[in-house]
Computed example of a mutant assay.
Amino acid sequence: MTWEQLVKLGCQLPEVEEGIWFRTPALKVRGKSFVRLKEDGESVVFLLESVDEQEFLIQALPELYFITDHYRGWPAVLARLSKLRVPECRRRLEQGWRLKAPKTLVKQREAPRGPPPRTSPRGRSKRSP
């Protein structure tokens, strides 16, 4: 994956825009950064809910996730872009977004979009009157 591909995925989340965080490209929701490109251009910083999650991810997927001393003890993890795949990227972006987005925006995203259309026994949808 490239940073540009990650940005494209991240911008699918509500109110996400590109910005700068610690002098590197980042994604923000309402001005709050939730992922950034590292200075090496080959890895990104994802925010996490806890340090325990950081340790779990590094142990479970050491080829993808790692930290430097700077991030030890902080709820964040580094990911190698070259090893990052779309489903995992979406999961981490959504998590970081939820951590930084206002609660009202998160609730809007979680709100049901209405009931699915009813279907007849033959599988055709019926319109409600």
Rank of each mutant, 00 (worst) to 15 (best):
A60C: 00
S33F: 00
C89I: 03
E63K: 14
T2M: 08
Q108N: 12
R124D: 09
K28E: 10
E55S: 07
V77E: 05
V7A: 15
P115E: 15
W21P: 03
P112V: 05
F22V: 00
K126R: 12
R90H: 02
L48W: 04
L6F: 08
F22D: 11
V86F: 01
V45M: 03
E49D: 14
E39C: 01
D69Q: 14
R113P: 00
F46D: 01
L6M: 13
D69L: 11
G123T: 06
F66M: 08
G96N: 09
G123L: 11
R127V: 09
L61C: 03
E88R: 13
M1R: 04
G73N: 04
A101E: 09
E88T: 14
P117S: 10
L6Y: 07
R122G: 09
V106D: 14
L37P: 08
K83F: 05
M1G: 05
S120D: 15
V45H: 02
W74K: 13
R124M: 11
L78Q: 03
E110I: 03
R118N: 04
G10S: 08
Q5D: 15
A79S: 09
W21V: 03
R72M: 07
L47V: 03
E42F: 02
R91M: 08
V16F: 11
R127L: 15
L64F: 08
A111Y: 03
K107H: 10
L81H: 07
G41Q: 05
L48N: 00
K107Q: 15
W21T: 06
P87Q: 06
Q108I: 04
E88W: 03
V86Q: 12
P115A: 14
I20R: 09
K32D: 07
L9R: 11
L27R: 00
Q12M: 09
R109F: 14
K32N: 10
S125I: 10
P112G: 07
L105V: 15
A76L: 06
G31T: 05
E4C: 00
R23E: 13
W74I: 07
R122W: 11
Y65W: 10
L61W: 06
R30P: 09
F34E: 03
S43T: 14
L48G: 01
K38V: 02
L64V: 11
K126Q: 10
R36W: 07
M1H: 04
L47P: 02
C11I: 01
K103F: 08
L6C: 09
P87R: 04
R85T: 14
L6Q: 04
R30I: 01
P102L: 05
R80D: 13
K32L: 07
L47D: 02
P62V: 03
L13W: 05
F46A: 07
D40Q: 05
H70Y: 14
A76H: 04
S128Q: 10
I58L: 09
R80I: 08
S128L: 13
E88A: 08
M1D: 05
A101D: 06
I58V: 15
R122A: 12
G41L: 02
G19H: 06
W21H: 15
S43F: 04
R36N: 15
W74Q: 13
A111W: 04
V77R: 00
P87K: 01
Q5A: 15
E39R: 12
V51N: 06
L99E: 10
G96R: 04
K8W: 08
F46E: 02
K103E: 15
